[in-house]
Design a protein around this nucleic acid. Structure first.
Length: 236
RNA sequence: GGCCAGAC
């Protein structure tokens, strides 16, 4: 019922996976919601990925219908494990669910393909989306950055702005990291500026780390050093 | 009562 479901969710959020599972196993109505909460909990810890898979297979055998949220959580597991085969299987299920308008699910698809290095498929999933949000754009930018395609990340970011979508702190973090990995030092610095000046986003320590990385990799060690000294957050 | 993006 809803009470045990939310109790499972509470255990999961406190990372008490054993308690969560014990409670789940004791339920007679193991519904899709408590199952999803468990799977999400498992997915947060690499040591529990097998448990997530096993639970998913078990549910699959009972013939219980998968909804978009559980598919979404399985896509995240596929993405983080770079398990493309599983990802494609989940994708097929999602298509069967007629979930064209589910933004979160499609974002998870874009993310899964992007993290797996299947940037063509990621872009395809992205283009197919009827409604996109800042997460859709950021996921793809991150994917390009992660695979050393900084120029593509920058191009996509510009397209994002031209489409009137407002980037956020995560978008800039991904973008600056993308520049860092592709040696686009001055572009990266310009983006930091753009973030602060145009979008009034205050850099967090993650942004600073990224910028130090950007300068360091670009060979600007002294600049990196003076940058650290000027930062208005605690260095870490 | 359960879902999506952040480098090293």
């Amino acid at each position: 019922c809803a009470v045990s479901g939310s109790l499972i969710d509470t255990y999961v959020k406190c990372r008490r996976m054993n308690c969560a599972r014990l409670l789940y196993d004791s339920l007679h109505d193991q519904d899709i919601i408590s199952c999803t909460a468990l799977i999400i909990g498992y997915s947060l810890d690499r040591n529990y990925i097998r448990d997530a898979m096993n639970l998913f297979c078990k549910i699959n055998q009972t013939g219980l219908k998968f909804d978009n949220i559980i598919l979404c959580s399985m896509l995240n597991i596929s993405a983080n494990e770079a398990s493309l085969d599983l990802g494609r299987q989940i994708h097929a299920r999602a298509v069967k669910n007629r979930s064209k308008h589910d933004v979160a699910l499609h974002n998870a698809l874009v993310d899964m393909y992007a993290k797996s290095g299947e940037l063509k498929d990621a872009h395809l999933a992205f283009d197919e989306m009827q409604i996109k949000n800042v997460i859709s754009w950021t996921s793809l930018i991150t994917g390009y950055g992660k695979h050393g395609l900084g120029e593509d990340a920058v191009t996509l970011f510009e397209k994002m702005e031209n489409n009137g979508v407002k980037p956020n702190d995560v978008t800039f973090l991904s973008l600056i990291c993308a520049c860092s990995h592709s040696g686009l030092t001055s572009k990266g610095m310009n983006f930091l500026d753009l973030m602060v000046q145009k979008y009034a986003i205050q850099p967090r320590s993650e942004h600073y780390s990224c910028v130090v990385d950007l300068l360091g990799r670009g060979g600007f060690i002294n600049e990196a050093y003076s940058f650290v000294k000027k930062m208005n957050v605690e260095p870490n």
